[in-house]
């Protein structure tokens, strides 16, 4: 008996030391993960004037200044316009893409029709081509439709959603797990496929709908390459990624780096809040996706 209690005690001790180590590791990891963001926030308060007047790099602003933020909202800068563009693109892409993915997933999961396997294999093969390959061709297709330059925003929505049917894996995997017996029962009661989809499947698919919408919403914020191609020098059609990236890469924008930090922060905040709020669904989606492959 006493022997046993010693063992329990030693295990407890072992667990405590283990936990201390774990805490230390977690704290170190957190510091590493947070440092760049903290630096970004700090530097965003260094005004351009201060940034230009010295050739040192440092984190803590000598004078805390909101100049960069003021500039972003001033009329000299298209930032607000870029922001709205991106928001519009992200919202539409999110809605349309989710609808398309749901349709495709339902059809592939629940229905058996001629060409089903062929379609799935064909899309799998298509997905193996690198996306940038077709960029120039897509650009000219869009241009012929009048959806570049001034029309870049609808153009990007179109390109962002047109091929979204190919990303059905996660959602189809989820539908596969909804018992077919439910459908069968409804069919016996005389419900059509469309009705079953709307009344039975969709309500049960809430997590995957949110996951799909969230992922689709986040992608356009990062689209630099194709967005800059489609805007083709028309600055009012830029999205935030194109606009802000120019400030870092091109010499034309002297001393815009801290403004970039401020702009980046303003972009990151809402996306991050949204992500955090819907994190639960995101976890469900990625886990499901990883398990289904």
């Amino acid at each position: 008996m006493s022997n046993n209690s010693v063992r329990v005690a030693s295990m407890k001790r072992k667990q405590t030391t283990g936990n201390i180590v774990a805490y230390i590791v977690l704290i170190v990891i957190s510091i590493i993960w947070l440092t760049p963001f903290v630096c970004l926030v700090l530097q965003s308060f260094i005004s351009r004037a201060e940034f230009m007047s010295t050739s040192e790099v440092y984190l803590i602003p000598k004078t805390w200044s909101l100049d960069n933020y003021a500039y972003l909202f001033s009329k000299d800068c298209n930032f607000v316009r870029w922001y709205i563009n991106t928001l519009v693109i992200a919202t539409f892409v999110s809605i349309i893409q989710t609808a398309i993915v749901l349709c495709v997933s339902y059809a592939l999961s629940r229905m058996r029709f001629a060409g089903r396997t062929f379609l799935m294999k064909f899309w799998l093969i298509l997905g193996m081509f690198p996306g940038f390959l077709t960029m120039i061709c897509l650009y000219f297709i869009l241009r012929e439709m009048g959806l570049t330059q001034a029309g870049a925003v609808p153009g990007l929505i179109l390109v962002g959603t047109a091929s979204s049917g190919m990303g059905y894996y996660v959602c189809k995997g989820f539908f596969d797990t909804i018992p077919k017996a439910l459908d069968e029962a409804a069919r016996i009661d005389g419900a059509s496929r469309a009705r079953i989809f709307a009344i039975i499947t969709l309500p049960m698919a809430k997590p995957i709908v949110i996951y799909t919408a969230l992922v689709a919403f986040m992608a356009p914020w990062c689209d630099y390459v194709f967005a800059s191609y489609v805007a083709f020098g028309y600055s009012k059609s830029y999205n935030v990624a194109v606009g802000l990236q120019n400030w870092v890469w091109t010499n034309d924008y002297q001393g815009f780096f801290t403004r970039f930090c401020a702009g980046g922060l303003l972009v990151a905040i809402p996306v991050t809040i949204l992500f955090m709020a819907l994190q639960k669904y995101y976890v469900e989606g990625v886990t499901g996706g990883a398990v289904k492959g």
Binding site: I136, F232, S235
Partner: peptide, 13 residues
């Protein structure tokens, strides 16, 4: 549109 990008864009389309 910066000078470098202008020339590239003009050539692209």
């Amino acid at each position: 549109v910066g000078e470098g990008e202008a020339a590239s864009n003009m050539i692209t389309d």
